[in-house]
Every structure is written in structure tokens, then in C-alpha cells.
Simulated scan of single mutants.
Amino acid sequence: MSSNVETVRVELGDRSYDILIGEGLLDRAGAEIAARLPGIRAAVVTDETVAGLHLPKLQASLRAAGIDHATVVLPPGETTKSYSHLQTVAEAVIEARLERGDAVIALGGGVVGDLAGFAAGIVRRGMRFVQVPTTLLAQVDSSVGGKTGINSPQGKNLVGVFHQPALVLADTGVLDTLVDREFRAGYAEVAKYGLIDRPDFFEWLEANRTHVFAGGPARIRAIAESCRAKAAVVAADEREEAGARALLNLGHTFGHALEKAVRYDPARLVHGEGVSIGMALAHRFSVREGLCSGQDAGRAEAHLKAAGLPTRISEIPGPQPTVPDLMAAIGQDKKVSRGRLTFILTHGIGQSFVARDVERQAVERFLADELAEG
């Protein structure tokens, strides 16, 4: 293993797997997959944008390792996480005559990973799955932990299964092909890990953010630390039953509501931007509820702003959402239990917690004030 590649282990008993993080992993993908899943055939699922950038390199690597494979190329964008595209992938895998012991390989961002993983989890009642994430957001968040799924017209990620990958290959070099906006959006999830329960990591990010954006060792370290944080939570609470894994949704309850309000239009809002605004909202709501100091909330917001991320609803272009629209989406959040609202709130930097039975009227008043300030 090259010295510039870090390995993070996700400990889940006989379903444990490695996350490899470093430059040049796409060239070695076939060898790494063949070493862990000898004799497999595969279906590579990607989108049109990623296919043009990275598919030939992955295909050459698979051929060099003797891995026979089919390829499914989908349209890019959040709307691809749909029933119709799930059917497309499932039927393509079946048509390729892949067996249960074969693998689905996701080459792309979170949309491709979620959709391909869901297909792998249900075709032949569960096939092997490999994540090759090509965005920062996917490398530090959606490719790790086994959450897969598609969107429903009623909300995001409401249909899916837990299906752990056999391997995650995070090639940090491919991130150089991202447009600045996509990299910044992924960085929101990196900052999230510091804000949840790693104040030292957040402080390191404050000092090293520009180096992370520039690439090299700082980028590898930031991604590896993010993966370690998520791996630890997943190992302790794989299916979000004990509550610990819910902390990973810091900012997501507000963020998902904002995404639904703009109808998942990426011209207006992408996921990481929604998470950034959501984390800022969660900190300001915590201040309002007397849980967190304004200084800590301001520090969190300042860091997100410095990274070029939005922190206010008013920064979303186009018509502003209404409080009823946002509350309807929040009511469909997966953390809602028997109608009771659950949010991830905070006592300060690195001190997030699960807040159950949050008063609906308090959230409505807060959102009304936030929209009025815009």
C-alpha cells in the first residue's frame, strides 16, 4: 500500500470493510477490488458527467484485473434518485446475468452511490457493492455507512435499505475535476464532523481550510478524519436505533426541507449548501432556545461563510419558501417518531445532541423570524 494512502476500517463484525483514501486509487481500483472480491463480475453504475471524466480509467483498471463488467450510465442530478432510474439499474444488472456473489460498483457522487447501493441491496435479495465516490461530499459522507435509497415525491431518501459496501475507494485526485461550488458543498459535511463532537478537528479546519481546498496531504487528512468520525458512529449505531447515528444529521432536517422547497433544483441549492444553511439554523435555533452561546454559533457560521457556503435562507436564489412548506417537509423527516419532532441541536462547538419532542410552534416562530430577516 502506498504511503500516501490512508486506510480507515469500518468495524461491523463479518461485514467490516476498508475505506482507502489517497491519490491515484482509480488506477488501482481493479486490483483492490479483485484482492477482496476474487472472481467477481460487476456492473458499473455512473452518470453522464462522471463517465466523461473518469469511466475510461476505471474500466481500464477493471480489465487489467480481469474483472468482466457491464456499464450503466444515468443522467446527472438529484432527480435521478427515482423509482424509474432504480428500475433501469436493477434491470440492467439482471440483464447482464450478474449473480448474487457479483458486485455493483458505484462511480460517482452521492446520487449514484445511493441509487446503485439500493439496487445492489435488493437485486437477487442483496449483491456485493463497491463505492468509488468522485465528489468530496460522497467521499466523507454518503459512501460510508450503508445508507442507500431514492427520493419520494413526498421527501428525500424516504425509500431505501441499509446495505454496507465491501470496499470504498476515495481517490482524492479526482476532486480536482470538481467545480468550486461542488467542492465547497462537500466541505460542509467535513465541517459537520467537527461541529458534531470533534472540536479539535474543527479548530484544525479553521487553521487549515485553505490547504484542504488546495489538495495534497491536508485534503487526505481532512477526508480521513471525516471518515474515521463517521466509521466510529456507524460501528456504534449502524441502523440509527440507539440515537448516536442520528447526530450525523446535524443540519439535515432543515437542509432537506430547504431542498424539497426548491424541488431539488441544483441551480438554486445543492445538498451541501442545504446542509450548511441547516447547520447554521440549528446553531441559531440552539441559541434561541438557550442551549448554546451566540459566540459558538457565530464561530460555526463564520467558518462556513469563509468556505464560501451559504448560511441564510435568503441566500437561496429565487422565491423564498414558506413556513408551512418547510414545516410540512420537516414533518416527513425520518427522525420524526409518532409525530414528534426531533432535531440535532448543540450546546456549542463539538457538543451536538439529539433533541426529541421539540415544540413545533417554537420551530415555526423561528423559521418565520429567519424568513423575515432575509
Rank of each mutant, 00 (worst) to 15 (best):
I196N: 01
G318V: 06
I21T: 10
L20G: 00
R184I: 03
G251T: 00
Q164C: 07
E301P: 02
I122G: 14
L178P: 07
A29K: 06
K81I: 08
R125E: 01
G251K: 11
L281G: 02
E206M: 13
E189F: 04
R365N: 03
G339V: 10
K57H: 08
N157S: 13
P266Y: 08
A191W: 02
Q351T: 00
E78M: 04
V161Y: 03
A214C: 01
P319C: 14
G331K: 13
D68C: 10
E78D: 01
A60T: 06
A218M: 09
R299W: 06
E259K: 09
V174A: 07
T49R: 15
A29S: 10
V112F: 02
M1I: 03
R209F: 05
L20P: 09
R219G: 01
D176S: 15
N249W: 09
V233A: 13
P324K: 01
D200H: 12
G145A: 02
S286M: 10
L281Q: 02
H211N: 15
G194M: 10
V275P: 01
S286D: 02
L98D: 01
E32N: 04
S276T: 15
A218H: 09
K81Y: 12
T253A: 12
I220P: 00
A116E: 00
D27S: 14
V161S: 06
G255A: 02
V112T: 08
E240H: 05
I21A: 04
A65E: 00
D14E: 13
L58W: 03
F254E: 01
V89L: 12
G126A: 09
T71H: 01
R356S: 12
T71N: 04
E48W: 08
T7Y: 06
I316K: 07
A64Q: 07
Q59M: 14
L115S: 11
T311Q: 07
V323M: 14
E370D: 13
F366S: 03
F366A: 00
V270H: 00
A224C: 15
